[in-house]
């Protein structure tokens, strides 16, 4: 696989803390110019993977190529071309937001003052306040402005909108579209499924340190299950139909999810029971997700 076409190529990645595996045979490929959603329940290993990509921690085994290089031996080289927003932003309490933005930008080689001013304005950040007086959302904005004010070939964003209000989220989405239009690549870890649906070309879903789903978002959605809600039918009607999952009673009816291939069989099974009401919800990322997350618990 040509690494120039793929800013991030991870193969058979393992990371163990003592005997506990945090990453267990993880593969991840991010193509050039795409916005790649990186999803998974809490503790799945998203931040661990990102820290390995940044050369902050070392892989136990497996191969990691970021912009064509292994980040661990010399993270300085790869990090020169990466803009990063950590998931949990902590700042120097005695510096102002503006000072921190300038510090981080200068460490990366300096940013355009015009971009900096535009972003501070767009995110409605008061750069004169000391970082200790900032709320979670404002700390997030400081990290976002510092990351976005200098162009980079690769952006790694770990839950970048946590703590942002809906207006700021939309500012953030506009910024991601802007950087994608410049040809940059974005790895976006997020729990905001609507954000992922709006922004991402491809997604990778991980659970317990391994990939459970990866592909183009359109393809995943096409194959995602449809959720049915039916009244006047017992659960036994569909429980044995192949491709049907999550059958449970809900109010005076039942609810279940059915793969697209199972829909004819489901309709056939329901027909003989004379349902009094039927709602089918089209495939959404959330359904896909909940299925993966729920199997994680069982």
């Amino acid at each position: 696989m040509l690494t120039s076409d793929h800013p991030i190529v991870v193969r058979a990645l393992h990371k163990h803390y003592g005997a506990t595996p945090a990453l267990d045979d993880l593969d991840l490929t991010v193509g050039a110019g795409e916005v790649h959603g990186f999803l998974g329940p809490n503790g799945a290993g998203k931040s661990t993977t990102i820290r390995i990509l940044l050369g902050l921690i070392r892989a136990t085994s497996g191969s990691v190529q970021v912009l064509g290089r292994d980040p661990w031996p010399d993270p300085v080289v790869t990090n020169r071309d990466i803009a990063y927003v950590p998931g949990d932003v902590s700042l120097w309490p005695n510096l102002t937001g503006g000072e921190i933005i300038d510090l981080l930008l200068s460490l990366r080689g300096g940013g355009g003052p015009g971009e900096r001013a535009r972003l501070i304005d767009a995110f409605e950040l008061d750069p004169r306040r000391k970082a200790r007086t900032y709320s979670k959302g404002n700390r997030q904005k400081v990290a976002l402005v510092a990351a976005l004010a200098r162009p980079a070939p690769l952006y790694i964003l770990d839950e970048p909108t946590s703590g942002l209000d809906p207006v700021m989220e939309s500012v953030f989405r506009a910024e991601v579209r802007r950087i994608r239009n410049t040809g940059a690549t974005v790895l976006l870890s997020s729990h905001m499924l609507s954000e992922v649906e709006q922004l991402c070309d491809r997604v990778t879903v991980i659970r317990a340190g391994r990939v459970v789903e990866t592909g183009r978002l359109d393809d995943l959605l096409r194959n995602a299950p449809t959720v049915f809600r039916v009244i006047g039918v017992p659960a036994e009607a569909v429980i044995r139909v192949p491709g049907v999952t999550g059958v449970h009673s809900s109010g005076d009816g039942i609810e279940f999810a059915a793969d697209s291939s199972a829909i004819p069989a489901v309709l056939h099974a329901l027909h003989s029971f004379n349902p009094s009401s039927l709602t089918a919800t089209p495939p959404a990322l959330e359904t896909l997700f909940l299925r993966h997350y729920e199997t994680a618990r069982s």
Binding site: R51, L54, G55, L56, P75, V76, V77, N79, R80, I82, Y84, P86, D88, V89, S90, L91, W92, L104, L107, R108, G109, A143, A146, I156
Partner: peptide, 14 residues
Amino acid sequence: SEGRAELLLPSPLP
């Protein structure tokens, strides 16, 4: 430990 190294070290600072 307070997480600021995670902002500093992903820059080209060895």
